[in-house]
């Protein structure tokens, strides 16, 4: 058994105390940061859900955007124009005017992507909203990028 000198054992004690302090500091920091993030995430989630709700119900050509999105997914014309092109222009305009953050928008029909605006990113997503009319259905969602 190796016997430690008094000085060496004191250094080891000091190192242990410093390590304990670092561990306690890290645990505190983890809880502090996760609380901040969860608050931000909850706000972004509300914003994303409000936005997707506003997009699907906005009036366009005496109909609503949900009908235009379904027309795009079923490759039909809407309002005498190509539905996808029309939606692209209008939703881009809405996203630009309503939020400062970059927002990704997508519409899917039977898991096939029929329309996307902006690039997919890391962020907070809205819930998937099912829109339906006599021509079919689609799922839409937005994601607020970090």
């Amino acid at each position: 058994m190796v016997l430690l000198k008094k000085g060496q054992s004191e250094v080891i004690g000091l190192v242990i105390i410093v390590l304990i302090l670092i561990v306690v500091g890290l645990i505190f920091l983890k809880f502090y940061l996760s609380k901040e993030n969860s608050n931000k995430e909850s706000i972004s989630n509300i914003k994303a859900n409000n936005l997707v709700n506003a997009i699907k119900s906005v009036s366009i050509c005496n109909n609503n955007m949900a009908d235009a999105i379904i027309a795009c997914c079923t490759k039909k014309e809407f309002c005498g124009k190509d539905a996808c092109q029309l939606i692209n222009e209008e939703i881009n305009d809405i996203l630009e005017k309503s939020l400062e953050e970059i927002v990704y928008f997508e519409a899917k029909q039977q898991n096939n992507l029929c329309l996307s605006i902006n690039n997919d990113c890391q962020g907070i997503s809205s819930t998937e909203n099912l829109i339906r009319n006599q021509d079919g259905d689609a799922k839409i969602r937005v994601k607020i990028c970090y």
């Binding site: 706000i43 936005l51 506003a54 997009i55 009036s59 609503n64 309503s98 939020l99």
Partner: peptide, 18 residues
């Protein structure tokens, strides 16, 4: 703070984004 929201204008019977 601000958030997008759907607005209904009863005078025009139209939904808008606000």
């Amino acid at each position: 703070i601000s958030s997008p929201v759907a607005i209904y204008d009863a005078t025009l019977d139209k939904f808008k984004v606000g």
